[in-house]
């Protein structure tokens, strides 16, 4: 019988790269990304699912990485903010839009908002304003007052549609 502190071998597929790590079952996905994979772009705010700073994509869906165990993410495709920009450093259309529309101030919540918005826009590129605002209310930002985040995501959505040839 295993002990609670025994480590489990977990293979995380993050941004197309495999990370083989050994973690206790209690290790959250957020901590595993930061501490075991060295991917500190995923931020931790509240650690109980309220703030959304740790939002990443698992199987293409935005989820709270603080509410998922690393062992549960074994073998599942994960995307984090580190995977948004191109290999040449070119910003993802949504990152560029956040930059231009002043969609951030201190930047702490930004990785979570980016992953939330990318996850939603890839599934629903033509999402309406009311639905978008409701979804963006999932995450907390204490600086911007949200207006510029909404504007940035709107502008980013238009850029993403252009870059994927959807009109």
């Amino acid at each position: 019988m295993s002990a609670p502190s025994d480590k489990h071998a977990v293979a995380l597929e993050v941004n197309g790269r495999e990370y083989r790590i050994a973690v206790e079952p209690r290790r959250t996905l957020a901590d595993a990304l930061r501490e075991d994979c060295g991917l500190t772009g995923t931020h931790l705010g509240c650690e109980h699912g309220v703030c959304g700073a740790c939002t990443v994509l698992v199987d293409g869906a935005p989820v709270r990485a603080c509410l998922m165990l690393a062992v549960q993410a074994h073998g599942r495709p994960i995307r984090t903010v580190e995977g948004l920009a191109g290999m040449d450093g070119a910003l993802h259309p949504l990152q560029a839009a956040f930059h231009e529309a002043h969609g951030l101030q201190c930047g702490f919540c930004t990785p979570g908002f980016l992953m939330l918005a990318v996850g939603v826009l890839e599934r629903e590129p033509d999402i309406g304003d009311a639905a978008l605002r409701e979804i963006l209310s999932s995450n907390l930002c204490r600086c911007t007052g949200y207006q510029n985040i909404v504007a940035a995501v709107r502008a980013g959505a238009a850029r993403m549609r252009r870059s994927t040839g959807h009109g």
Binding site: G49, G52, T55, A61, P62, V63, R64, L67, M68, L116, G119, V120, E134, I135, S137, S138
Partner: peptide, 12 residues
């Protein structure tokens, strides 16, 4: 369902 938590929570 629109009142059940938030979109990312509803995914899991």
């Amino acid at each position: 369902v629109r009142h059940v938590a938030h979109y990312p929570i509803r995914q899991r």
